[in-house]
């Protein structure tokens, strides 16, 4: 008896089952998600990214921040996430209903960023940190992202967007200004806020 078709079909079935079970069924289940109306004026949570934050997501993707940072908070009592103040509740599927691509991450070489916008709303802090992480977080192994900034030489007027670098990090008579990509990235980070009390994330 030639069992070849049987083997190939069996092998095909194994993967078709797991595809349906793990990908298609959950996807269909999540499609029922609706945003929650948060206020009488009709504003909603979650909202899709827009404007500079949306552009900033592309910068986050192209710089590969995901390889060192997660964007997910685990439940209370599971790991130290909430006690570390990385969020006030666990994150749930609905938090990500508009995320495309989703950037959950699997590695915490650096801290979680799911709520970095709530934790650290200051633009100035983010610019200093991206320009040189040692300024704000001595001992960090995060790379510098100085190519997201421009240097403006002495003689010109201090430009409006110049960042407030400590003198030790600034060459005499120069100013450092974020580029458009730098600004977008910071707006994206400031938009990371998953503190809204979703009903299914009570625990």
């Amino acid at each position: 008896m030639n069992r070849t078709p049987f083997v190939i079909f069996g092998v095909f079935l194994t993967i078709a089952f797991s595809l349906s079970g793990l990908v298609l069924i959950p996807n269909w289940q999540f499609q029922e998600h609706q945003p929650v109306v948060t206020a009488p004026d009709g504003s909603q949570y979650p909202v899709p990214y827009f404007g500079m934050a949306l552009q900033g997501r592309d910068v986050y993707v192209d710089q590969g921040c995901l390889y060192c940072h997660t964007q997910q908070v685990r439940a209370k009592g599971y790991g130290g996430d909430i006690r570390r103040n990385w969020g006030n509740r666990r994150t749930v599927a609905r938090d990500y209903m508009y995320e495309y691509p989703i950037l959950l991450g699997t590695m915490r070489t650096g801290p979680d960023l799911a709520n970095i916008g709530a934790r650290q709303p200051s633009r100035d802090w983010h610019y200093l940190h991206l320009y040189n992480p040692q300024i704000t977080s001595a001992g960090s192994v995060m790379p510098r992202f100085q190519y997201l900034f421009r240097t403006i030489k002495a003689g010109e007027l201090a430009p409006s967007g110049a960042i407030a670098l400590p003198p030790a990090f600034l060459a005499e008579g120069t100013h450092i200004v974020p580029t458009a990509r730098g600004e977008q990235l910071v707006e994206y980070l400031r938009a990371q806020n998953r503190t809204f009390p979703l009903p299914e994330a009570k625990q």
């Binding site: 595809l19 793990l22 990908v23 959950p26 599927a93 508009y98 989703i102």
Partner: peptide, 15 residues
């Protein structure tokens, strides 16, 4: 091609 949304993308990724 955006056939899956939200966290299903992450499942697809790890599938």
């Amino acid at each position: 091609f955006g056939l899956v949304q939200g966290v299903s993308q992450a499942i697809t990724n790890w599938w």
